[in-house]
Design a protein around this nucleic acid. Sequence first.
DNA 1: AATCCTAGTTTTATTCCTCTAACTTAATTG
DNA 2: CAATTAAGTTAGAGGAATAAAACTAGGATT
Lengths: 179, 179
Amino acid sequence: MVSTNKQQKPLTPVMEDYLEAIFDLDKKKRVVRVKDIAKKMNVKMPTVSSMLKTLNERGMINYEKYEYVEMTRSGANVGKEMRRRHEVLNKFLTEILKIDRIVADEEACKMEHALSPETLDSLTDFMAFIQSCPRTGQSWLNYFEEFRREGCFPEKCQARSETFNCEIKDRIEGNKEDS
Amino acid sequence: MVSTNKQQKPLTPVMEDYLEAIFDLDKKKRVVRVKDIAKKMNVKMPTVSSMLKTLNERGMINYEKYEYVEMTRSGANVGKEMRRRHEVLNKFLTEILKIDRIVADEEACKMEHALSPETLDSLTDFMAFIQSCPRTGQSWLNYFEEFRREGCFPEKCQARSETFNCEIKDRIEGNKEDS
DNA sequence: AATCCTAGTTTTATTCCTCTAACTTAATTG
DNA sequence: CAATTAAGTTAGAGGAATAAAACTAGGATT
C-alpha cells in the first residue's frame, strides 16, 4: 500500500460533482470559497461544509475550517477527468445531435458519471472520425439536420442513391407506440 | 385532479430501475416474485419488499403481500420507456461505438435516467441516418473501426481525399494528457 | 471600541436506499 | 399430516445527501 488516499471506497457521483465544481472554480477564481461552491452546486452552505469534511477525510482536498479550499493532486485529477467527460458529452450532444445547449449541459452532467474511459475514448474518436472523414464532415451533419426536420432524406442526398428512401425512417418510427 | 397517481413527486432513478426490472420479468416469466426482482437488481429481499410498498403507494404496481407483483398501466409505461431508452443507448454503444456488450449494458443502465426524450429521439434518428445514408452505412462504420485500430485513416478511404490525413487524429490525441 | 454584516459552522432532522436479524407464511416432502 | 425448507415480511439500524435553525468568526463601518 503506497497509495495516497486513506479510503479504498470509490467516490460517489455527488463527490465527483463537487470535485468538478471545485476544479472549475479553481481555474476561474483566485480562491475557492464555500459560498461559491454552494451556488455552483445549487445547494445550501451547510451541505457544502459537510461535503468538504468528507472530501478532506478522503484526501481529495486540504481544508481547514474558515480557510480557502485547496485541491490535492488526486482531487484535482478527479475534477479534471470529470470536466473532460463533461466536455466530450457536451460536444457530442450539441455539435452532433444538435441538442439545446442548456439541456445538453444538464444531461452531460448526469451522464458523465456513467461513462467508462473506454467509452469516452471511443466517443472522442467517433467525433473526430465524423469531422475528418471525407465521406461525412460538416456537410453530412447538415444533411442529418435536414433529415430530422423533414423526416426523410434531403433531395440532393436522395438523388445519389437508387436504394434508399423514407421507408427506413418510417420503419423505425413505427416501433414507437403512442402513450 | 383527475390523475391516477397519488403522488405528484417524480419517481427516483432507483424506482425507475425497479419498474424496468419488473417490466422485463413480466415479459419473460409467468409471474413476478420478490426473489426474482432481488436477483435482477442485485439487492436483498427486504429491500425489494419495501420498494414494492413504495411503488404500490405511488400507484405503479398492485401488490398485496405474499402475492405476485402486477404492474398498473402507468407503472408499465414507465418500465417500457426505461426499457426503450436502455435499448437505444445499448445499440449506440455496441453497434456504433463497438463497446463490449457487458460494459455497454452497465453504462446504458446508468445513463438511461439522464436522457431526455428529446435527446433520445435525436439519437435514434442519428443511428437511423448513419445506417441508411448512402454516404455512411455499414462500410463507413467498418472504416471507423479500422480508424480506431490503426490510429489513422484506412488506405481506401485516404485515397479518396487529397486533404485529410492522420494529422487531425493526432491533433486530437495530443490534447489528452497522460496521468 | 461597539456594532453589524457576511461567510461559515454545528446541530438536528428528513428522505432515500440499503442491510442484518428475527420472525411468519407458504410450499414441499417424507 | 407433521416437519422441513424456501420465500417473504417486519423491525431496526446505518450511510449518503440534503436543509433549517441557531450559533460563531472576522472584517468593515461608523
